[in-house]
Design a protein around this nucleic acid. Structure first.
Lengths: 210, 210
DNA sequence: GACTGTAGCTACGCTAGCGTAGCTACAGAA
DNA sequence: TTCTGTAGCTACGCTAGCGTAGCTACAGTC
């Protein structure tokens, strides 16, 4: 059964500019999550967005530009700041924020671009300048530096290695399991890896979860 | 100028079975490193190996099977065992082995498959059972468990999180920079992150490198 | 030397995608 | 209501790849 839009000989309906742009941005993020970067295609994005290829080429010179544009508009902005609690609870919250970041709808697209680092360094650089640099993403680094400034941590222990422990373990967990770490695992990361590196010795009993 | 192989009307030369198999295995590893998994194609592998597509399809049902077969034969085998040194030097050597693993010619192929975890869990599972499980790859875990058995480390501190710190930081370094960590960075990882988690407190001065 | 399994080649009919040309027609502004 | 910028459509000529059929011919074994 064919339903015709009034007056439309083609049966076609035309959308507004803003509608087309929003549909394309959403479609490219979903498409790259499903296909990976290597099989991302303008035809696939147009199909998913329900637009013509010409509508894409009128706004973006390539599907890569559309992808970066979509990420600029959709990637979550970090809001982690030390909340006046203590070091441990602030570290836990920053890992929670990181996990939120890594689980955002944009995360597969970010991962897809990062996976192309050797082949497309230009894209990765653009990702950092157009998405990461404008959206923050310092997580545990922000917290550790804050407490170091307050004198609660020996500032000499705040090294590039140490501020990276938490994120490294979260990402490794995701690589190994395909899942983001639970609250229990995040607590273990804080208690068993981050705090010991800041001279808060590990407590080798059961340990208390959040 | 056309050079004809004696007696070959086609100008073609025919290789032995072993030669074809070796060429295909090497070609698929190089091809996937260059193209990524998404654009890996039988035609590209055949071209690079200098064989006909039919020669590939006679031995492997798909390019994925060829890739896993190639990895099974080429992936380095872990030889890290505690060498009778001390904990620190053994940890340094295990990270050196890991970096050797990650820098092996097979590493891009491994990464390409791991990047397809969401889309192709079957391939990732096959990677673990056919490649990882048979080639080891426990690195710092092996060292830490050895010293725990000897009583030099509180065994209660040897948790899944703690044994993963070193590899997590190495992999994070590679994700962030595209490079494998230098000896200096590896030493910092051992001194500032792994040892503190095992109750060997960090030394917040310059610290001695390897 | 004879035999056999298989390498190499080309063509096949197909899918998928690229980026644009040229057109119709409509959403939104004036 | 008129005007304009642009959405939607289809076709185009192209590249790239798939997996096999059918053939020739040769590497290696006996």
């Amino acid at each position: 059964m064919v339903v015709m839009v009034a007056g439309a000989a083609h049966g076609r309906s035309r959308r507004s500019l803003a509608d087309v742009v929003d549909a394309c941005r959403a479609a490219v993020l979903a498409e790259v999550a499903e296909t990976g970067f290597g099989r991302l295609a303008v035809e696939g994005v147009a199909r998913r967005a329900g637009v013509a290829k010409t509508s894409i080429y009128r706004h973006w010179p390539s599907v890569e530009e559309l992808l970066l544009d979509a990420l600029s508009h959709a990637h979550p902005v970090e809001v982690a700041t030390p909340g006046g609690g203590n070091l441990r609870s602030d570290l836990l919250r920053s890992l929670e924020q990181l996990v939120g970041w890594l689980g955002a709808p944009t995360a597969p697209a970010v991962a897809a671009i990062l996976n192309e680092r050797q082949r497309r360094p230009d894209l990765v650089e653009a990702l950092y300048t157009r998405v990461f640099d404008t959206h923050g993403g310092r997580f545990t680094r922000t917290v550790i530096e804050h407490y170091a400034e307050r004198g609660e941590i020996d500032a000499r222990l705040v090294t590039p290695i140490v501020v990276d422990i938490g994120e490294a373990l979260v990402i490794k967990h995701q690589i190994d399991t395909g899942q983001l770490p639970s609250a229990e695992v995040r607590a273990a990361i804080v208690d068993q890896a981050i705090l010991p590196a800041l001279c808060f010795p590990p407590v080798p009993d059961e340990g208390n979860s959040t």
